[in-house]
């Protein structure tokens, strides 16, 4: 392989190499089984942290969230749950569709492809102090570029680790979205069930208390 500086590269730097060379990067990762769980977890943690900061610290006039109402727990749960739901949905479909990727690799790919969004969030936080609402469109362009980049990385990465053709990758990504919807639906059902259970317990406790 031509660019095999990879062998010497630290696993913590490697995601940045992948960002600019997705095809080679993911291929080498797959071949050399270089997907690192610690890096994945680190990226997710960083993403959560940046997301929290983003909600809290983007300057007041450009912040679409209410900085006073940001709940760290909620952001954490949402971010982590998002990662798990995406990877779980993809894993479910791709095991059925002869995908070669392992769960850990899918996780690694999804985490790595989140890097542009993460970095753009950091940039947006800094830039928001210099920009006013009139320049918001510029920041929005940056955000769109970051999201497109993320999607591209995810597509290429999933194609590589599952050994899919481009068409099959698109199909599997569409199915992943369907899977996410199904999982969310089930989660909602479960949630309401838990709520009913909770109410039941509360009622029983109250009944006992005022017996």
């Amino acid at each position: 392989m031509k660019r095999s500086g990879f062998q010497m590269m630290s696993p913590y730097v490697y995601p940045f190499y992948i960002m600019t060379h997705p095809k080679d990067g993911f291929q080498e990762m797959k071949m050399n089984k270089k997907s690192s769980l610690s890096v994945t977890i680190l990226i997710i943690c960083a993403y959560t942290l940046v997301d929290m900061l983003y909600r809290k610290m983007v300057d007041y006039d450009l912040n679409i969230y209410d900085a006073k109402e940001v709940s760290a727990v909620r952001v954490m749960v949402i971010t982590v749950a998002t990662f798990f739901v995406i990877t779980a949905a993809n894993w479910c479909w791709c095991t059925l569709l002869d995908g070669k990727g392992k769960y850990q690799e899918i996780f690694y790919v999804v985490a790595c492809s989140m890097l542009p969004t993460l970095m753009m969030n950091v940039i947006t936080i800094v830039l928001s102090y210099f920009f006013a609402a009139a320049d918001l469109i510029f920041l929005q362009y940056l955000a769109i570029v970051a999201k497109a980049w993320t999607l591209l990385l995810m597509g290429v990465g999933l194609a590589e680790i599952h050994d899919y053709s481009a068409k099959k990758t698109l199909f599997s990504m569409f199915l992943t979205v369907v899977g996410i919807v199904i999982i969310l639906f089930l989660a909602m059902l479960l949630m309401s069930l838990f709520q009913q259970l909770y109410l039941f317990v509360v009622t029983v406790v109250l009944e006992l208390k005022y017996l």
């Binding site: 709940s71 749960v77 949630m191 709520q195």
Partner: peptide
């Protein structure tokens, strides 16, 4: 187990509002 834990956490987060 992890999923149940997550649900529990989010439930708790919802209760605190």
């Amino acid at each position: 187990r992890l999923f149940a834990l997550l649900l529990g956490i989010s439930l708790l987060a919802g209760l605190g509002q």
